[in-house]
């Protein structure tokens, strides 16, 4: 999932301070799962903002709405009946959702309520960790299903480096050395010879080095 964290309330208060009527829009997908911008977080943020302004003697009207997805224009259309009644929109979706709203509604300001972080997985309840950087040329087949790009602090293609100690990375004892994990897994699978293969320098154009990326499925695109 795409993970996110709510921005500091102070920053959000300053975004909406000039306005009286806000549409606070959540997203039912990734940000719901990582407890950053789903229906519940929309309710909490609306309540927090109302209280922060009430403290200053200001009443702010916040309409709450959570869309199935904010990264598809079909769902953004659901905002149309509500947009006329508000002065600004605040989105609790990832950066994709914020931009879709901005693209659809030219005359109304849109603000992000969360900081979009990374593509990650749940390590346990309440803990999410980075697993993929979307490099566009997956090499998990060579590394035992464990990604050195997302999980090695140096993004080394052929590790480990000298900073690996007792299976931990030198940046923190809480961070696993991913090349230790890769080696342990390859060994467990009896695929140690895979480790001997040198992975050549990566072509980062697929990772965004070639400009903004786009996927076109010709059979689906109209």
């Amino acid at each position: 999932m795409i993970t996110a964290e709510r921005k500091p309330l102070e920053e959000l208060i300053e975004y909406v301070r000039p306005y009286d009527r806000i549409l606070l829009v959540g997203c039912n997908e990734c940000v719901t799962v990582c407890a950053a911008g789903g229906r519940k977080e929309v309710g909490l943020l609306a309540s927090a903002l109302k209280m922060a302004f009430a403290k200053e003697g200001k009443t702010i009207d916040i309409k709450e709405l959570t869309l199935e997805r904010q990264c598809d224009p079909e769902y953004i259309e659901e905002l149309v009946p509500h947009i006329e009644d508000v002065d600004a929109v605040m989105s609790m979706a990832c950066g994709c959702g914020v931009q879709e709203i901005a693209k659809r509604f030219k005359n109304i300001p849109v603000f992000p309520a969360v900081n979009t972080k990374f593509m990650g997985a749940s390590e346990q309840q309440g803990i999410w960790a980075e697993r993929c950087q979307g490099c566009g040329d997956c090499l998990l087949g060579l590394t035992g299903g464990i990604c050195p790009i997302a999980r090695c602090s140096k993004h080394l293609m052929n590790g480990p480096c000298g900073g690996s100690t007792n299976g931990k990375c030198e940046i923190s004892p809480d961070v696993d050395c991913v090349w230790q994990l890769i080696w342990d897994r390859l060994k467990a699978l009896g695929m140690e010879d895979r480790y001997e293969e040198i992975i050549p320098a990566k072509d980062w154009r697929t990772a965004g080095g070639g400009g903004p990326r786009k996927i076109i499925r010709e059979d689906l695109a109209e």
Binding site: K40, G43, L44, S47, A48, K50, M51, A54
Partner: peptide, 11 residues
């Protein structure tokens, strides 16, 4: 007792 219940009480 949800976070929402607590915040609403204060609100």
């Amino acid at each position: 007792v949800d976070a929402m219940h607590i915040l609403k009480a204060f609100e």
